[in-house]
Amino acid sequence: MKLVDIETVEPGQTLGRTIFSANGTVLLSMGVQLTVYMISTLKRLGVTTVYLDDPMFRDITVDEVLSDDTKRAVIRQMSETFETLRSGKQFSTKSIGQTIDQLLDDVLKNQGVLVQLSDIRTEDNAMFIHAMNVCMMSSLLGLEFGLNMVQLKELAIGTLLHDIGKLNAPEIQEGKMHHSWRGFELLKNKREYSLLIAHIAFQHHEAVDGSGFPRGLTGEEIHLYAKIAAAANTYDNLLFNAEDLKPLLPHEACERMNAMSGRELDHEVLVHFMRIVSVYPNGISVRLSNRQTGVVVGQHRGLPGRPIVRVIDKQGEEVVAAKEIDLAQHPTLFIDAVLS
C-alpha cells in the first residue's frame, strides 16, 4: 500500500487501511473500492491522506504497536467516557482500566515495533485517536525508562486522559490553562487513581525551562510521567494538529522536537523518544540523493533515518525494473525529500 494525498485519489482505487468512526466502529474497511461519494465524504470529514492499495507496493505493511481490535476498544472507550462526562455523570474507572490492560498487552508484545502513526483521522475521531497515540507512545517510553507494571498503568491511564479537561473548555490560550486545571480536578477526585495520574493532565503543558503552563514549573519540578506525556503529545500535535501551522511530516516533527531539547522538552526523554519512532514511515514516497524516487518498504530499529526504499524504474507507463535499496548498507546515499 501507499500513502497519498486525498486530493489525488480517484474513483475505483482501493482503500489500503481501515478508517474508524468516532465511536470505534468501522467507517470504511480496507479493500473497499472508493467511489466519488466516498471520496467527497472523506474530504468533508477532514481526511487529508489515505493509504491506497497499489499493485507495485501491495506487499508493504505498516507494522503496528496496537491491533485494530485494541484501537476500536480504545476509541470506543474514549467516546463513551466523554459522552458520560457531557451528561454530568461519573465515568467508569474500571472500564478504562480494562481498556488500558488491553493496550498495554499490545505494547509489551510489540515493543520492538517503531511507531508509525498511520490511522486516518476525521474531525469526529481526531481527539480520540490523539489520546490513543499519546497513550501508546508514552507507554513505549515508559518501557524505555524501565517503569514497572504499576507505573506503566499509571502512565497509560494518565496519558489516555491527559486532555479530559478539554471537554467544554474554550480552545484559546486561557482555555489551555483551563483544561490542565480542569483535567487535574476531574482526575484527582477519583479515589481509584493515584495523584500522579491527575498530575499528567496538570503538567503535560509544562516546559523544562519554565516557559510552560499552568504553573511555569522547571526541570525536576515536572514529574517524569508529564515529561513523557509532553513529548508524545507534541509529536502527535506536530503531525496532525499543529495550531496555525502546516502539519509536519515525521522527519520534520523530529527535527522540530530536537530543537526543543532542554527548553520545552526534556533532553533525556527526547533521546528515548527518537528510538521508538519511525522517521520515514512505510508507504511514504521519497526522493533519494541520487535523484531516484521510491517508496519506503522497511525499517531498522536503532536506525530510524535509514529505511529500506523500493525504487521503481519505468519507461513511460511500463515498469522495467524494481529494486530495494537498504540505506543502512549505503552510507553515502540518503533521503533528499519526502514526496507524499
Score class of each variant (00 low, 15 high):
Ala201Leu: 06
Leu196Pro: 09
Lys166Thr: 10
His204Thr: 04
Phe202Asn: 13
His205Phe: 05
Lys188Pro: 02
Ile172Lys: 14
Glu174Ala: 04
Thr159Arg: 12
Ser194Ala: 07
Lys176Asp: 09
Ile164Glu: 06
His162Ala: 07
Thr159Gln: 12
Leu186Trp: 15
Lys153Gly: 03
Ser180His: 08
Leu186Ala: 07
Leu186Gln: 14
Ile200Gly: 08
Gly175Val: 03
Ser180Ala: 15
His205Asp: 00
Met149Gln: 10
Lys153Ala: 02
Gln173Trp: 09
Val150Thr: 12
Ile164Thr: 08
Met177Thr: 14
Gly175Gln: 06
Trp181Glu: 01
Ile157His: 04
Arg191Ile: 09
Ala169Met: 03
Phe184Val: 00
Gly183Leu: 03
Ala198Asp: 02
Glu192Tyr: 12
Glu174Lys: 09
Ile197Lys: 11
Lys176Pro: 02
Met149Tyr: 10
Ile164Gln: 05
Ala156Glu: 06
Leu186Thr: 08
His205Cys: 04
Glu154Met: 15
Trp181Phe: 10
Phe202Ala: 10
Asp163Ile: 00
Phe202Asp: 03
Ile157Met: 02
Phe184Trp: 14
Arg182Ile: 00
Pro170Lys: 13
Lys176Thr: 04
Leu161Tyr: 12
His178Gly: 02
Gly175Lys: 01
Glu192Ile: 04
Ile157Asn: 01
Phe184Ser: 00
Ala169Phe: 02
Thr159Cys: 15
Leu167Trp: 07
Leu161Met: 15
His178Asp: 10
Ile197Gly: 12
Gln203Ile: 03
His205Val: 00
Asp163Pro: 02
Glu174Met: 08
Val150Leu: 07
Lys166Ile: 00
Met149Ala: 02
Lys166Glu: 11
Lys188Glu: 02
Met149Asp: 08
Gln203Leu: 11
Thr159Trp: 14
Phe202Cys: 06
Leu167Ala: 05
Asp163Tyr: 03
Glu185Phe: 13
Phe184Leu: 01
Leu196Lys: 14
Gly165Arg: 01
Asn168Gly: 01
Lys188Tyr: 08
Gln203Cys: 06
Lys166Phe: 10
His179Val: 03
His162Cys: 04
Ile172Trp: 14
Ile164Gly: 08
His204Ile: 03
Gly158His: 00
Tyr193Ile: 04
Ala201Pro: 07
Ile172Asp: 15
Lys176Glu: 10
Glu171Tyr: 11
Ala198Lys: 09
Leu152Pro: 08
Leu155Trp: 14
Gly165Ser: 11
Gln173His: 09
Gln151Ser: 15
Ala169Leu: 02
Pro170Gly: 03
Gly183Gln: 10
Ser180Lys: 04
Ala156Ile: 00
His179Pro: 10
Glu185Gln: 11
Trp181Cys: 01
Gly158Cys: 05
Arg182Phe: 07
Val150Ser: 10
Glu192Phe: 15
Leu155Met: 15
Ala156His: 04
Val150His: 14
Pro170Asn: 06
Leu186Asp: 09
His162Asn: 14
Met177Trp: 09
Leu186Pro: 12
Tyr193Gly: 05
Lys166Leu: 07
Ala201Trp: 12
Ile164Val: 09
Asn189Asp: 12
Arg191Val: 12
Val150Cys: 07
Leu155Lys: 14
Gln151His: 13
Ser194Tyr: 13
Leu196Thr: 11
Ala198Asn: 10
His199Gly: 03
Gln173Ala: 12
